[in-house]
Design a protein around this nucleic acid. Sequence first.
DNA 1: CGTTGAACTTAGCACGTCCCGA
DNA 2: TCGGGACGTGCTAAGTTCAACG
Length: 901
Amino acid sequence: MSSSSDDDQPLVKAKSSETISKSTDAAMDKDMPTTDSDTVKPGVSIAFGPVDDDNMDVDQPATNGAAVNGKRKASLPNGKSYKDASDSEDDDVPLQKRRKTSAAAESDDDDDVPLKKSGPIRATAHQIGEESDDDVPLGEKLQKEKAAMEKKAGKQAAATRRASKSGEAKRKAAKKESDSEDDKPLAKKPAPKKQANGTKKVKKEESDDDAPLTKKAPAAKKTKAAPKAEPASAKKGKGKVKEEDLEEGEEGEEEYRWWEDPTKGDGTTKWTTLEHNGVVFPPEYEPLPKNVKMLYDGVPVTLDIKAEEIAHAFGGMLNSTHNVENPTFQKNFFADFKEVLDKTGHGKDKDGNKVKILKFEKCDFQPIFNHVDAERQAKKALSAADKKKIKAEKDEKEAPFMFCMWDGRKQKVGNFRVEPPGLFRGRGEHPKTGRFKKRVTPEQITINIGKEAMVPAPPAGHKWKEVKHDQEGTWLAMWQENINGNYKYVMLAANSDIKGQSDYKKFEKARELKLHIDAIRKDYARELKSEVMAERQRATAVYLIDQFALRAGNEKGEDEADTVGCCSLKFEHVTLRPPETVIFDFLGKDSIRFYDEVKVDPQVFKNLKIFKRSPKKEGDEVFDRLTTSGLNKHLSNYMPGLTAKVFRTYNASWTMAELLKKMKSTGTIPEKVKDYNNANREVAILCNHKRTVAASHAQTMEKMEDKINGMRYQQWRIKQMMLDIDNKIKKKKGADYFALPEDLSGDWVKEHQASLVEQEKIKIQKKFDKENEKLEAEGQKPMKAKELQDRMAVATDLETKFKKELKTGKVEAEGKGPSVDKYEAQIEKLDQRIATAKTQSEDRENNKEVALGTSKINYIDPRLTVVFSKKFDVPIERFFSKTLREKFDWAIKSVGEDWEF
DNA sequence: CGTTGAACTTAGCACGTCCCGA
DNA sequence: TCGGGACGTGCTAAGTTCAACG
């Protein structure tokens, strides 16, 4: 490693020298005017001061149980191979690398992070237990726990100041029991087993329809709730949601600024009155025309409608190879297909003879695909007016379902359509991908609605599974899906009051974390050396979550895609490269790859080494003593409601806030928007938000490069023209100046010339055609072909000229009044255009797999964007689309330009 | 105390529309 | 003015969290 001296360097510097992908770095700096900004890291990381814990060294593990594996000081468990992995991977991961080596604790001015100021933390590695917590009265702890239990979501601001101490008390207790065994890895945690067939049993609720609330109201529930919201809805009388009620709205209703309403936001009751019209079912399956049949072994077969529906689903997908060619997808599809075939008697040929469908390979869905595709085309080809009409009709039908009345206010429903049947498209290597997701019947759907409200009628001949009046739930309808037994909910849209409120709360919680983050960091810095293995793992995990924005990482079952987060990281996902680099490489949520090489605190490095020590091997968990609930329970000691995910929100928003704070965005609006987007991009990279690279990306890049080369070639030509005028400047400027750039080969030049000529021809042709069209339209005679030929002379002349240039290596001066000065000016202009184009192309390359949207929608406090918009006078529309403006209405209306995260 | 259920947020992709430069 | 890429939106899968359960 080249970085031996980093430690004493200013952190900012150290970082860039560490960063793995240089090219990326360079590129990024260019589009990042505030170059230092990329060092922003929400937290400190290092700064834990000298790690004076030799006694804690690897071979001196946390507890007395110690020496499980004898000494192995300098060598990694399992030997070598760490670097190979990283080196070879580099190319695959051009981007990403920005999230460096955590070391970046710049920001001396940063009051959120006093850690570094506090100097070495003397942890007295052993005997922490005895150290200090005796001064915490036990009573306090109990009290605190009780409080936490009582008010789950409530405001309960203070209460927790001493949380960390109480944490210690617990730890002490914990230590006693776990002492001796502590550092032996637990036996592999048993994989959570799900029901073999995958469907969690749907809960049976024996309630009759008009039973009282199924959930008992907690004793402490607000009593004022009931009287409060009545009036609004009462005036129209109880019962069905009247169409007018739902449609009026827009102009009428005065807005409700819930964020200014002090009565809002506590307690668990979400509504008092709730009226809605239920859900929209997908259209019944429409059988294929008689002449469209799947082929089995070349023979067209007629299927029962149930089976046909599944075949139809598969056939319609034939164009998306990544589903249809996936063996798991095929296998699962065919298993479900066959099951239905067995039930419905397989297929019949044209003579009515039974055709047993046994092999996927013999099925040919092409005819179905052709049909589906034709229908798609036809739909696309519809006239704009027709399309509009169809949409209007659909809208009208659905209008009653689009809104509900929530405590008397009209609110938009998010997803009132029941999911249609189809083939399950699990992400990544989902073991169930391709299975048939069945049609949902009303009998599977539970409705949640106000007691007084009229219950929407189920489709004729059907009934709802259940109707309940759960005021603690925000959902209107719910069912369970048959593939994984997952619950699906109909809830309100993002712009609704209730969603806005919880969004607001989420960001307020993240802001509250600011008040505790110092203590938390201090604690985990210390606990990294804890003698209690569980505690040490926990501290290490919190460190990772805080520094690298990892997700919590729940356990997953065998019937799910194999993805991980922090707590579920496995041996093979973490590679250690001494002295202090950690390489993460794993699939996270949605099977998106998380790859990062980072420098970590030395103690963290040691810990990970310990956690990976043999007998652990591939497949074993790094944090075998840690679960997400344990972790979250610990975190909640610091602050009510603090969980792992809050760190992501906090760090994302904090990062954005710092970047925007530093930004002295000047210039045009597009430039300011770009600055904003660059900050947004850093957050997206922090959160590892990716998108798949567009199929056309490589081609686009090629085009851009071509364009740039064209300009460079043009520069070369101009330089030759300079020589043509004044040969003496060759000496003055040096021969290099006039040389053709090396990477522009002779072949390339030829090709380029040809394409220039070609373009010229096309241009002439087009102009000619257009003029002719115009002439004809005016009733005049078109120009003759001869005219075209004459005009084409320009292009042929160009061709000749190029050829000559090629031969002689000289370029005749062009333009009127040519002069060296003029040419120099031209070259300079081209220089600029080249620079711009290069930046653009680099931007695009760097951005190809980064998705900005997710962080903007979910992680960056929208008030930051509003502040930026106000401060730099950029219309908010430039950052938030219409729907986002509605979603973030509360933010847009509640802050001025001096608000701070 | 671990497991499961339930409810909620977060996530990328497909697809339609908009918009901008050749 | 057209084509293609950016953008907006709907969809639904895949997470997290916390309470209830045994």
